[in-house]
């Protein structure tokens, strides 16, 4: 087996970035899979890559002819903002309610 790149410490950091609360068993599975995947990802290092190789963000090149122009600045209100609000888990006076964000000021 390849060496573990995603150590338990690094894994904890990623979990924090991802904002997950994980069970121990779940965490163990995820960390093991990540390390397996990294093993596959390291295949990329074998690719001979001329240093000036550009990146490709989309496969199909967006030439001028096929690129759509930006949107005109015309107001068109969405007819049902209440449908969006109806999805919210908790609301009060038209606001969405969330828990507090403490310790902002020290």
């Amino acid at each position: 087996m390849p060496e573990e790149e995603i150590t338990p410490e690094l894994f904890e950091h990623l979990v924090e970035l991802a904002a997950f609360e994980l069970g121990a068993e779940e965490a163990e599975y995820l960390r093991a899979e990540l390390n397996k995947q990294l093993n596959a990802i390291h295949e990329l290092e074998a690719v001979p890559l001329p240093p000036d190789t550009p990146i490709t963000s989309h496969g199909v090149p967006y030439t001028r002819e096929i690129s759509a122009p930006p949107r005109e600045d015309h107001w068109q209100p969405f007819p049902h903002p209440e449908k969006l609000m109806a999805q919210a888990p908790e609301t009060e006076d038209g606001y969405i309610v969330v828990p507090d964000i403490p310790h902002e000021e020290l």
Binding site: I6, L10, F11, L14, V15, L17, A18, A19, F20, E21, L22, E26, Y29, L30, E33, L34, Q37
Partner: peptide, 18 residues
Amino acid sequence: RGQGFGLQPKLRILMGMY
């Protein structure tokens, strides 16, 4: 997020973070 996502989204998110 911990309760709402299954294993596969979690795996993809964590790898993406890394």
